[in-house]
Computed example of a mutant assay.
Amino acid sequence: MTEETTKTSGYFDLQLRFDSANRVVSIKVNDVSLPLAPLPEESCCGDSDDTIAAGLTVPGISNPAIETAPAGPSLDPLLGLGLNVLTVIGAVLALQGLVYWNYFADDPQFLDRYGWWMVYLDVSVVPLIATLGYLRSYMYAHASHMMGMVIGMTIGMQVGTMIGGVVGATNGFFIGAMVGMSLGTLYGVLTAWCCGPMAVIHGLMAGVMGGTMGAMVVVMMIPDHVLIFMPVFTTANLLILIWFTYLFYKEGVAAGKCQLRGPLTLAQLSSFSLVTIGLLSALMVLGPKGPMVWKGHKRATVGANAAENPLQPKEIAKDGSSAEKPELEMACGAMMMEGGSSQK
């Protein structure tokens, strides 16, 4: 038994013929028959109302074999990137330990002065390079303006803040601000360049702000429990990088707006991290030092000549001369108390 459906318009006449199993058996357009593939053998389970010949889909008839939802992007690359970051950090720490035992083990003050800051340098540089590598592994020129501004702002701010803070602790505010501001603006502009002038402006502003503020905050915290402050400070910055990477994945990669250029490999992450950490470590150890740097747990936190520090409290002697009080170093409140007692 067959069924015929006719659709007529001003341009052509379409005729479809079906059998009892709702399978198309013939197609005719303007009295011209179109060839069809042979009908499949009926299954042992009898006729199926969902069977359609020649790959045609008839409205009102479902076909579970054809209606399959496309699979979206997986989070596995992000998880693999996180594992690579941990691997590279461990390898860099092992290499730094080897360099220390071979070249700096004779200096009893080296670990006290640079040990913690080398660790924070590794924890800052490797995730930053991983974020930059993941971002540049996709072509995001056609991303939204909002996404472009977020890219410039986040990269500029985080590079400047994290690098400037670590370098500022060992070399002073001037060197830390210059290094953080330079790197922050450079990478902020490079990553946001293809997203338009508004994203580039955000990268410039964030680099200037992050480089100066990161160095200033850490340097100001040196006399006041900086080693307790740094884990919280670094963790907050790492969370920003993690959520930025997930935002880029969700808004760009998963949404299909960014095409893959080439994944960031473990070898690339390792090579870029080693070069960057090597250059910054050399600057931290051999570079110029400012008047206020970290010199260890029990050492002075200002320069060798403490008399040049304008915040150094002084005691007024009976003869009118002033005498320094090293034990009240950087105590502004103590200086005010001394001034009040001298007036009495």
Rank of each mutant, 00 (worst) to 15 (best):
M1N: 07
M1P: 03
T2E: 13
E4T: 14
E4C: 02
T5K: 09
S9A: 07
G10L: 09
F12S: 12
D13S: 12
Q15E: 13
A21H: 13
V24L: 15
I27N: 06
S33Y: 08
P38T: 07
E42H: 07
C45Y: 07
C45T: 08
G46M: 09
S48T: 04
D49E: 12
D50S: 10
I52D: 11
G55E: 11
T57F: 11
V58F: 07
S62Y: 13
A65Y: 05
I66G: 02
I66A: 12
E67V: 08
A71H: 09
A71G: 00
G72P: 15
S74E: 10
G80Y: 06
G80C: 02
L83E: 04
V88W: 04
G90L: 15
A91V: 11
V92C: 06
V92D: 04
L93T: 03
L93M: 13
G97L: 11
W101S: 10
W101F: 14
F104W: 14
Q109P: 00
L111H: 03
D112E: 15
G115H: 08
M118I: 07
V119M: 09
Y120E: 06
D122K: 01
V123K: 01
V126E: 10
T131A: 14
Y138T: 09
A141T: 11
H142E: 14
A143M: 11
H145C: 01
H145L: 11
M146W: 09
M146R: 11
G148K: 05
M149Q: 08
M153S: 13
M153R: 02
M157F: 15
Q158A: 13
Q158L: 15
V159L: 06
G164T: 07
G168V: 04
N171I: 02
F173I: 14
I175F: 09
A177Q: 03
M178G: 03
M178E: 02
M181W: 08
S182T: 15
T185A: 13
T185L: 15
Y187E: 13
L190T: 07
L190K: 08
T191C: 14
W193N: 10
C195D: 05
M198D: 10
A199H: 01
A199L: 07
G207D: 06
M209P: 00
G211M: 05
M213D: 00
H225K: 10
L227W: 05
M230E: 02
M230P: 00
V232C: 07
F233T: 01
T235G: 06
T235D: 03
A236D: 02
L241N: 10
L241H: 07
I242F: 15
I242W: 14
T245A: 11
Y249L: 04
V253I: 15
A254W: 00
A255F: 02
G256H: 07
C258F: 15
Q259H: 10
L260V: 09
G262Q: 13
L264F: 02
A267I: 12
S271W: 15
F272K: 04
S273K: 04
S273W: 04
L279V: 15
L280I: 13
P288A: 03
K289I: 03
G290Y: 05
M292Q: 14
V293N: 11
P310H: 00
P310D: 00
I316A: 10
K318G: 09
D319L: 05
S321V: 04
S321T: 15
A331C: 12
C332T: 13
C332E: 12
A334V: 03
G339N: 14
S342C: 05
Q343H: 11
K344P: 09
